[in-house]
Simulated scan of single mutants.
Amino acid sequence: MSTFFFRRSVEKSFQLDESPTNLTLNPSKALPASAQPPFITSAVDDVMYIVNQVLQRTLNTGQKTVVASVVPSIGRVLGSDFFGMVQRRMRDECYPKAAIQGALPPENIIIAFLVLMNSLDVATDYLKRIIRSSIGTSTAEDAANAFADKYPFGNEATFVLKALKNMETGFEAKTSELIGEAVEVMLKQVMRPRLRPVLIETFRDVDYLVSSEEDNHAQDDNDSSDADIVSKRFERGWNAFTLPVKRILSPANYDKLLTSTVGYLARTLEKRIWSYYGRVNALGAVRLERDISGIVAAAVKGGRYELRDAFARCTQLVLVVNMEDDEWDEINQLDGRELEKASGMAWKLDDGERKRARALLRQ
């Protein structure tokens, strides 16, 4: 009966489901005061409220047989009905695909897709909180002892605890996988198409064959913004398409999306550096290193520091290009642990790649 009630309640929740209204990706427009993050569908709150009620009543019976029947059933309904409904909506109703080749998906479709991503993330977090409040303690041993009053016979308390944990991990595994797939969809359909023109504009008319006269002029002209024009262009373009997404997505989901986007940016940036073979001189190499550093700083701003690790190959490429001859000769003779010890860094470039990087410089 509990399973039927819960399944019918989930079905009803989606029939009455409502999404936040008036959300926008336009950074110049404020989000409605009535909508507060995290932005999720109403079905999440409704379903998780019912989960909490059914779970508490089940645990309060003090009967192992009831727990053995109801708790796995709740997990199955969450993993099939609730999860399946969100998955179908993401696939059939809100998949962010452009109507015209080369264009971006409609804004309302992107927002709906992001809200469903949030719904999965928040639902998982809600379930963890419900189970944590039911257990009431942090360690498995203490939790089993806490259940001992209601389930005093044999290993009943341990059985109940395991049933709750299995429900939590099973649901989290499914939602995490779907969120990962959704991140890849966002990267492919939204972030990559926006990033390509940003990089084109960032390096527009930038020359790394710098003469001494040009370098002196740039240093003497204190009012000129040419010195950091690349990083400014990139930061302006990067923020234009990442910050609107950030204010819609939950922090955990945005971190996953940012990590994937930064990884793609790092790979694209590395290809661009390699493309400058024979088009960089000594003064231009200094400018290139400064530009790459500025782009990295802008991309990871506001994110985890570990995001910088994605750019390790890029930063090492420009580092090798800018080495003095005697420093390069010393590094070039070392390998493995000796190289890491002498340079103080873990090298992502192998010996052949370091030599190729050095050859980028026009002598």
Rank of each mutant, 00 (worst) to 15 (best):
S13V: 04
D121V: 05
V160N: 00
L265R: 02
I111T: 02
T158K: 13
V280D: 00
L25S: 03
S275Q: 09
K165C: 03
T202Q: 02
R267T: 14
S80P: 02
E93F: 11
E270Q: 15
L199R: 03
I179M: 08
W238T: 04
A112D: 08
S69G: 04
E168R: 11
C94V: 12
G154S: 12
M323W: 08
E141I: 14
A266K: 05
G278E: 05
V210K: 08
V321H: 03
V230A: 00
K12M: 13
E93S: 13
T242Q: 03
E353C: 02
S275E: 08
R313F: 02
L249S: 03
V296N: 00
F5A: 13
I248N: 00
A227I: 10
T242S: 04
F82N: 01
V183P: 01
Y126G: 01
M323P: 00
T61W: 06
S133W: 10
E289Q: 15
G263E: 07
N222D: 12
T315Q: 15
F113S: 03
Q53D: 12
K128P: 00
E177R: 13
I109F: 07
S119G: 05
D46I: 12
I111S: 02
D45A: 11
S224D: 06
Q189S: 09
R308H: 06
E306V: 10
Q53G: 05
G62R: 07
S231G: 04
M323F: 08
Q53W: 09
W328S: 02
V115R: 00
S69M: 11
I331Y: 14
M117Q: 10
R290W: 08
L178Y: 09
Y126P: 01
S293A: 15
F234W: 04
A218T: 09
Q363C: 12
Y95V: 07
L114A: 08
S231P: 00
G237Y: 01
G180R: 07
N52E: 12
K128Y: 10
V206R: 13
N166K: 15
V47G: 00
R272V: 06
E181D: 15
P193C: 12
N155C: 05
G344K: 11
Y254G: 01
L243E: 15
F159Q: 15
E181I: 10
R89P: 00
R287Q: 13
P32Y: 08
E338D: 15
Y254I: 07
E324D: 13
R236P: 02
I50H: 11
G237N: 02
A342I: 04
I130R: 00
E168D: 11
V70H: 00
A148G: 04
K165S: 11
F113D: 01
T21E: 15
L114I: 11
I229M: 10
K64R: 12
